Simulated scan of single mutants.
Amino acid sequence: MKSFKQLALAAAVLSASFMAQAELKSMDDASMSAVTGQAGISIAGDFSGTVGNVAYIDDGNKLNLSGISMTGFAIADANPLTVDVIDDGGVQKLQIGLPAMTGTVTVANINIGGNYAGGTLTGGTSIGGLAISDINMGGSAIRVWGH
């Protein structure tokens, strides 16, 4: 009885491997060269961030930007950031395509003078703030490759 079970198990294992290959068909080189994989990946989302402080110090003169925020940068599902592999003159490169996305960078405080301590410039005379709107990098492409 034990030999029969082992024989049945061996037959099942062997037949499973034959059934798994039953639908495989050989391809010639021309057919294989036309086969491609996935075209790339797409990335969408909402992006925002902050920078605590930017200080510029030159010969005792000081400029401090604080309360920096980036808001409203969104990449829609309908127009995503794309990542593809391209052939650029025989060199395979990773290309990152930036879609149209607009947003705003705001600097809440710009101060001149003040004290620099612990990596932060504080105090000084305020000359107001700054807002940069409708920043759009759509159509830009970044290419990455080894050398």
Rank of each mutant, 00 (worst) to 15 (best):
M1D: 15
M1G: 15
K2R: 14
K2T: 15
S3N: 14
L7G: 14
A8Y: 11
L9R: 15
A10C: 13
A11Y: 11
A12Q: 10
L14T: 09
L14K: 13
A16M: 14
S17I: 09
F18K: 14
M19E: 13
M19R: 15
M19C: 15
Q21C: 10
A22H: 10
A22L: 13
E23R: 14
L24S: 07
K25M: 06
K25E: 09
K25R: 06
K25A: 06
K25H: 07
K25G: 07
S26I: 12
S26E: 14
M27G: 09
M27P: 10
D28E: 00
D29K: 12
D29L: 12
D29I: 11
A30H: 06
A30W: 04
S33T: 10
S33L: 10
A34R: 08
T36K: 14
G37K: 05
Q38L: 15
A39W: 12
I41Y: 12
I41H: 10
I41K: 12
S42V: 13
I43Q: 13
I43A: 11
A44N: 14
G45P: 07
S48G: 05
S48M: 02
S48W: 02
G49W: 04
G49Y: 04
V51S: 09
V51L: 12
V51F: 08
G52N: 05
N53H: 15
N53M: 09
A55F: 00
I57F: 01
D59A: 15
D59W: 13
G60Y: 02
N61Y: 14
L63W: 00
L63Y: 01
I68P: 02
S69E: 01
S69V: 00
M70A: 09
M70C: 08
T71E: 09
T71N: 07
F73R: 05
A76K: 08
A78S: 08
A78Q: 01
P80M: 01
L81D: 06
L81W: 08
T82D: 05
V83F: 06
D84Q: 14
D84G: 14
V85H: 13
D87V: 03
D88L: 11
D88G: 07
D88I: 07
G89P: 03
V91H: 03
V91Y: 02
Q92G: 10
L94T: 08
Q95M: 12
L98K: 04
L98F: 05
L98D: 07
P99Q: 03
P99F: 01
M101P: 03
T102E: 07
G103H: 00
T104N: 10
T104D: 11
V105N: 00
T106Q: 08
T106S: 10
T106A: 12
T106M: 04
V107A: 05
I110Q: 04
I110P: 02
N111M: 08
N115K: 08
N115V: 07
A117P: 01
T120L: 04
T120Q: 06
L121K: 02
T122E: 02
T122N: 03
S126N: 14
I127G: 01
I127S: 03
G128Q: 10
G129Q: 06
L130R: 06
L130Y: 04
I132E: 02
S133V: 13
S133I: 09
I135D: 00
N136A: 01
M137L: 15
M137N: 11
G138M: 05
A141S: 13
A141M: 11
R143Y: 11
R143I: 12
V144L: 04
V144T: 02
W145E: 05
W145I: 03
W145G: 08
W145L: 05
G146V: 14
